[in-house]
Amino acid sequence: MNHLTDAELIALSKRDEVAFETLMRRHGPKAAALARSLVGESQVDDVLQEVFISVHRGLKNFRGEAEFGTWLHRITLNACYAKLKRVVPEALEDYEHHLSSDQNVQKNAERAQLRSLIESGMQTLPLEQREAFALREFSGLEYESIAEILRCQLGTVKSRISRAKASLKEFLTSKGVRP
């Protein structure tokens, strides 16, 4: 089913479990990365499961006015907001713990370490910058789609992302990272 377009998979997903899984394997990893960057490692499973079940239920009403990816990331963002209201974000120490675990178990330790550091640095950003940055870098969305999701001006999105990057560069530099 991998050769099918999103629209074809969406049409099939309403009845076909394999089509739904193909669709979610295509877009889900970026949604997972977005969720992880916003709510932290310990909450990502809860958020993603809620998101997938919501998507599964909502697909029958999905009319394709927005791209599926944009819709999925909007749902993911809403699930993250709901989680953030209920749970205190992970402390920086928790990220440092994940960091050391990653170093032991992952093949690409250097990249995993950098990503963990970025996620850790994101926790120091204001939420509005964090979500804009995450939608850009983790979800890989265009600025226009981010503006649509966050319901704000394009210039505002660019400004938030720019400020987030500046803060992150500072954070990463303080941790000894050099590009």
Binding site: P29, A32, R36, L48, F52, H56, R111, L168
Partner: peptide, 30 residues
Amino acid sequence: WDNLIREASQPDQRDMAAVDRALLKVRQHN
């Protein structure tokens, strides 16, 4: 810096594994 951040932000094995677990949950839910 942009290149570095972009490269590090790509989905990794943890994300794939989280997707697998979420799909399992959807199956159970169904």
